[in-house]
């Protein structure tokens, strides 16, 4: 069946099966493999994307349910020519180890900072509570989110 949606600002029209997951659409049909599958059951958060301004586990959303939706993935945040402050902060604070959880972590962080640019440590932990890092680098990840908030505030709108 045919659906259309906007992914990272680009309008896409695709043919999907009813059982195609949003994650499969993003990775297989659109080739945006920055979004990862870790468990397929909404437990790990590696597949987190922003859908209509909400964080979702794209493994638990049917592609058909994203018909007409606006999706943002890690690729839509910033490339190496112009890194998003979150990406920059994750690099600087050493928050990246194996890296497999990082796209999901950054998307959850993005949503968190979109809503609250002055998050407390508790706010950050709650905002990232759906994302697991098995390298267990949580301290530096929390540091990176704080640093990104600082960067965004001091850099003004254009940084975001």
């Amino acid at each position: 069946m045919k659906i259309s949606l906007t992914v990272n600002g680009e309008k896409r029209a695709l043919d999907v099966k009813p059982e195609t997951r949003l994650l499969d659409l993003i990775r297989d049909d659109l080739g945006l493999t920055g979004t990862k599958e870790g468990c397929g059951k909404g437990e790990c958060g590696a597949c987190t994307v922003i859908m209509n301004n909400k964080v979702v586990a794209s493994c638990l959303v049917l592609a058909a349910q994203a018909d007409g939706a606006e999706i943002k993935t890690i690729e839509g945040l910033g490339g190496k020519d112009k890194l998003h402050p979150l990406q920059q902060a994750f690099i600087e604070k050493g928050a990246v180890q194996c890296g497999f959880c990082i796209p999901g972590m950054i998307m959850s962080s993005k949503k968190l900072l979109d809503e609250n640019i002055n998050p407390s440590e508790e706010d950050i932990k709650r905002g990232l509570s759906g994302n697991i890092c098995r390298c267990t680098g949580y301290v530096k990840i929390v540091d990176a989110v704080k640093e990104a908030a600082h960067k965004i505030k001091s850099g003004g709108e254009e940084n975001v």
Partner: peptide, 12 residues
């Protein structure tokens, strides 16, 4: 700075 961090934060 880790050499592979940039590729990992961009999804590359």
């Amino acid at each position: 700075l880790k050499v592979d961090a940039q590729d990992k934060v961009t999804g590359e």
